[in-house]
Amino acid sequence: MSDQEAKPSTEDLGDKKEGEYIKLKVIGQDSSEIHFKVKMTTHLKKLKESYCQRQGVPMNSLRFLFEGQRIADNHTPKELGMEEEDVIEVYQEQTGGHSTV
């Protein structure tokens, strides 16, 4: 019986991991920090939209990076291997420009 009891508790931990929340720091170019608590399985588009709304800027005017890689709207913290207190960097999107060649 103890084996049966242990097995469901392991499964519960697996389920808990799926719905687990982590805190992420979003740091802007001006070094301002906003902290977000997100589920591991939530699409990061929600975090990006919330950040842009707080900053009063359109979402397409900023780019969000985690460990140097651009974050897509459909990425989740779990897919990117994010952990508690990880940092997302935000930069002004640069458009235009010309070749110097």
Rank of each mutant, 00 (worst) to 15 (best):
S9H: 10
H35L: 09
I34V: 12
S50L: 15
E83N: 10
K46A: 11
E67N: 13
K46H: 12
M59V: 14
L44R: 03
N74Q: 07
D12G: 13
V90M: 06
Y21H: 15
F66G: 03
I88N: 02
K78P: 04
L65E: 01
K39G: 15
D12P: 15
H98G: 10
T42C: 08
L65F: 08
K23G: 06
E89Q: 05
K45P: 02
H35P: 05
V101H: 06
V90A: 14
N74A: 11
S61E: 04
E84C: 15
Q94T: 08
E49M: 09
E5W: 10
V38L: 12
M82K: 02
E18F: 11
M1S: 08
P58N: 01
S61N: 03
E79C: 04
G19P: 10
L24K: 06
K23S: 11
P8H: 06
V90K: 02
D30W: 03
E18R: 11
T100H: 08
Q92V: 14
Q55T: 09
G14H: 15
P58H: 01
D30T: 08
L65D: 01
D12H: 12
L62T: 03
S9A: 13
K39C: 05
M40N: 12
M1I: 08
V101P: 06
G68S: 06
V57H: 01
K46E: 04
K45C: 07
M40S: 11
H98K: 08
E84G: 13
P8L: 13
P8K: 05
K7H: 13
S2M: 12
M40Q: 03
R54V: 12
M82W: 03
I27P: 02
G97W: 00
L47I: 08
I71R: 03
I88D: 02
M82I: 01
V57D: 03
N74S: 14
S2G: 12
L13F: 11
L47W: 01
N74T: 11
R63I: 09
T10M: 11
Y21P: 11
L62D: 03
Q94N: 05
L80P: 01
G19Y: 10
T100S: 11
A6E: 08
C52Q: 03
D3L: 08
K23V: 13
C52R: 05
C52W: 03
T10K: 13
K39S: 09
T41Q: 15
R70A: 09
K37C: 01
N60R: 07
L80G: 01
K37N: 05
V38S: 01
T41L: 05
R63A: 03
S2P: 13
V90L: 02
I88K: 02
Q94L: 14
P8G: 08
D73R: 01
T95K: 03
M59L: 07
G96Q: 01
E85D: 13
E93F: 15
S9L: 11
Q53T: 15
T95M: 13
K16H: 14
L80K: 04
M82D: 03
Q4A: 11
R63E: 07
S9W: 08
V57Q: 06
D3F: 05
H43I: 10
V90E: 01
G28D: 06
G97M: 00
S99I: 09
P8C: 14
E49L: 07
M59T: 14
G56V: 04
V101W: 07
L47T: 03
Q53K: 09
I71G: 04
V26G: 04
L13H: 06
G14V: 13
Q94F: 09
G19F: 15
H75P: 06
K17Q: 12
K46M: 05
G19L: 12
D30S: 02
T42D: 06
G68W: 04
L24D: 02
Q94R: 08
G56W: 03
V87F: 14
H35D: 09
H43N: 09
L47D: 04
V57F: 05
G28Q: 05
L62Q: 15
S32F: 06
S61W: 07
Q53A: 13
H43R: 15
G14T: 07
G97D: 03
A6H: 11
T100Y: 08
I71P: 03
R54S: 05
D86L: 01
F64P: 03
Q29N: 15
K78T: 05
T100L: 09
Q92R: 13
D30F: 04
K7S: 09
K7Y: 09
T41Y: 00
H43T: 10
H35E: 07
F64D: 02
E67I: 01
G96H: 07
E93C: 10
P58G: 09
K48G: 00
S9E: 13
H43C: 15
A6T: 14
P58S: 13
S2R: 13
K37S: 00
K7A: 08
T95R: 14
D12F: 10
E18L: 10
G81R: 07
E84T: 10
K25T: 09
D86T: 10
A72L: 14
S61R: 07
Q53Y: 15
Q69H: 07
I22A: 03
Q69N: 12
N74R: 14
K23M: 09
S61P: 02
I34T: 10
Q53H: 14
E84S: 13
D86E: 10
G97I: 00
I22H: 05
L80H: 02
M59G: 05
K45H: 10
E79V: 15
L47R: 02
L62N: 05
K45I: 14
K46Y: 11
Q53E: 15
I34S: 05
T42M: 07
S99M: 08
T100Q: 09
D30A: 12
Q29P: 12
I27A: 02
H98R: 10
I22D: 01
P77Q: 03
G19S: 11
G19T: 15
G68P: 05
Q55V: 15
K25N: 11
H43S: 08
E11V: 11
Q69T: 14
Y91C: 07
V26E: 02
F66N: 05
F36T: 00
T41V: 00
E83G: 13
E67G: 10
H75Y: 06
Q29V: 02
G97S: 02
E20D: 11
F64M: 01
Q53V: 09
E33Q: 08
D73E: 03
G56A: 07
K45R: 13
I27K: 11
G19E: 13
P77G: 02
A72F: 09
P8M: 02
E89W: 15
K25Y: 02
E33G: 02
F36V: 04
G28I: 15
N60H: 10
Q53G: 05
I34R: 06
K78E: 13
Y91F: 10
N60S: 11
R54Q: 13
D86C: 12
D3W: 05
G96T: 03
T42F: 01
E33C: 03
D12E: 10
L47Y: 04
E93M: 10
P58W: 00
H75E: 12
N74C: 14
R70Y: 06
G81W: 07
K16L: 10
K7D: 08
K25G: 02
V57C: 04
L24R: 02
G28N: 07
S32D: 04
I34Y: 04
G19K: 13
V26Y: 02
G28E: 05
E33R: 05
M82C: 04
T100R: 10
R63G: 04
E5L: 10
Y91S: 04
G81Y: 01
D3H: 12
G81N: 03
T100D: 07
E5D: 13
D15F: 11
G28F: 00
P77D: 03
T95D: 00
L62H: 11
K17G: 08
D86I: 02
G28C: 01
E93Y: 11
E11S: 11
I27H: 15
K48V: 02
S99G: 09
T76C: 08
H35G: 06
D15C: 10
R63D: 00
P8Q: 15
E84D: 11
R54E: 05
P77S: 03
R70E: 15
M40K: 13
H75Q: 12
E11D: 11
V101A: 10
P58D: 02
L62C: 14
Q29I: 15
D15A: 12
V87P: 02
E85I: 05
V26S: 14
K16A: 12
I34F: 15
S31A: 15
G14C: 11
T42A: 09
A6G: 15
K39W: 09
S32P: 04
R63C: 06
M40G: 10
P77Y: 01
N60T: 05
K23Y: 04
G81V: 05
Y91I: 00
G28P: 03
K48A: 01
T10I: 13
S99L: 09
K7G: 07
A72G: 14
G28K: 05
S32L: 05
M82R: 03
T42Q: 13
V26F: 04
H35W: 13
